[in-house]
């Protein structure tokens, strides 16, 4: 089972970084979202500094969602999705492995470049660290919840549009706890309660999302 999972993670990783794999596109999208915000709210550095952490979280949320339809979509098109069902490993574990390798090439880089984009939004150094930290904890939950939507919409023509519609309401708790933890950390307020809630949501997503996605894939492929 280990070699099965490693093979899957290695292949998905390799596909993502090869040309045409779309690696980096979510990052460019993230940059674009952050870049257009000042055009809307004005180049007011004080205001941007106040809402900066929230802007980064929104940007990371949207950037996670775009591209999630490829998580199973590409495999469904070339027929390799059927192989998931005949591998010597349980389907929920396999989809969890797929989600994790997807997170490594999307969520993790998003969290990593967030401080850089935060500089442009006039966030002070400790705020940059706080945002990157909460994104590191929160983005896996976003990817996992998104995976449910990806499994539900696999093979649908309008899947790319339907997916965010299905997934965004589910991400409300992640957004709330993520941003409030960030703000508490920035303000120096006690952050333990919101941080533990964020962790709880992420852990719950780790358990429930693979089960839901596996069930959805089974139904969708039958």
């Amino acid at each position: 089972m280990t070699s099965t999972l490693l093979a899957l993670i290695r292949r998905d990783f390799r596909l993502a970084v090869r040309s045409g794999g779309g690696f980096g596109l979510p990052l460019v999208f993230f940059l674009s979202v952050v870049a257009v915000i000042p055009f809307a709210v004005g180049p007011d550095l004080v205001l941007l500094g106040r809402i900066g952490a929230a802007v980064l979280w929104i940007g990371a949320l949207l950037s996670t969602l775009i591209g999630l339809d490829r998580l199973f979509g590409a495999d469904a098109e070339d027929g390799s999705l059927d192989l998931l069902f005949s591998a010597p490993a349980p389907l929920p574990v396999l989809v969890l492995a797929k989600a994790l390798s997807h997170w490594v090439v999307t969520g993790l880089p998003l969290a990593a470049i967030a401080p850089l984009l935060g500089l442009m939004l006039n966030l002070p150094p400790h705020a940059l660290a706080a945002t990157a930290f909460t994104l590191l904890i929160g983005t896996p939950a976003l990817t996992l919840l998104g995976m449910i939507g990806a499994a539900l919409t696999v093979g649908l023509r309008r899947g790319g549009l339907l997916l965010p519609v299905l997934v965004l309401p589910m991400t409300v708790p992640v957004l709330i706890f993520g941003v409030s933890t960030t703000n508490a950390l920035i303000a120096g307020d006690p952050a333990a309660s919101s941080l533990s809630l964020l962790l709880a949501v992420t852990l719950a997503a780790f358990v429930l999302a693979p089960l839901a996605a596996a069930g959805a894939l089974r139904s969708a492929r039958s």
Partner: peptide, 17 residues
């Protein structure tokens, strides 16, 4: 499922590899 190979209409080939 682990006893069978199914070769379907799609080959399951990843063109980037």
């Amino acid at each position: 499922a682990e006893h069978v190979h199914l070769i379907g209409h799609a080959d399951g080939v990843k063109t980037a590899l």
